[in-house]
Design a protein around this nucleic acid. Structure first.
Lengths: 112, 112
DNA sequence: TTCTTGTGGTCTATACACAAGTCATAGGTA
DNA sequence: TACCTATGACTTGTGTATAGACCACAAGAA
């Protein structure tokens, strides 16, 4: 029942979210946009822009990526075409991998 | 009051979320982890892992990054130290930028 | 083949992210 | 200098993402 979710994040992912937020803020100021303007363009509230820029990990990833895109941040260091290509490659890779991961239990493979 | 949020995402950010989800799935299978195991390690439910891997944009960015980190995906093509360095650079950049963005109104700077 | 288990669904109840609003202050501009 | 606005920090009400349970099917293993 979705109880008191005090989630623990690893240092790495916390920093990644923080960095993305910082990049958004820097990119926004470089483009001379106010928080309100950016919020309007993204169709969100100014308060949410604040939280994203502060690196709040509980924001929707779609919204964060959208805001990042608006201020011109390249996700995965990839532009539009590279991104599409990357997706196709991942799909091909997934097609090769087994549909389900199954443990061969009882078989002690730690035979060291 | 937070009315029927049917948010619109740009193609780019939708694809970025999708790609990340696909990468997580591929990386998980390569590491021979079941969805349940990954969920346990991340401290989330299996259903959430499913949505993340499907590229649902409404998942928390912190959770998505955490899951990605667990399966060994490098965010921003950066490892731990690179990430920290990157954050410092962004902070320095922000220190140089004006604290608040202010429009010089009436001044038509589009003097082309 | 059968058996086991991983996966993809659905459904419900609850905690919380969000929008919208207010206020105080910092900090650019004139 | 004083004015004005962007920002930060709140508050409140509501929609919804989530956990957790369930079921059905698929897919490896024996």
């Amino acid at each position: 029942m979705a109880k008191s979710v005090t989630r623990i994040y690893s240092r790495y992912s916390r920093e990644a979210v923080s960095l993305l937020g910082g990049l958004v803020r820097a990119a926004r100021k470089e483009r001379k946009l106010t928080a309100q303007e950016l919020a309007d363009r993204a169709g969100i509230s100014r308060g949410l822009v604040q939280r994203i820029e502060k690196g709040n990990p509980k924001c929707e990833i779609g919204t964060v990526f959208e805001v990042a895109t608006i201020v011109g941040i390249k996700l995965f260091n990839a532009d539009k075409t590279t991104l599409t290509k990357h997706i196709r490659q991942t799909e091909e890779k997934l097609a090769l991998l087994p549909k389900s991961v199954r443990k061969t239990k009882k078989v002690v493979d730690d035979d060291f």
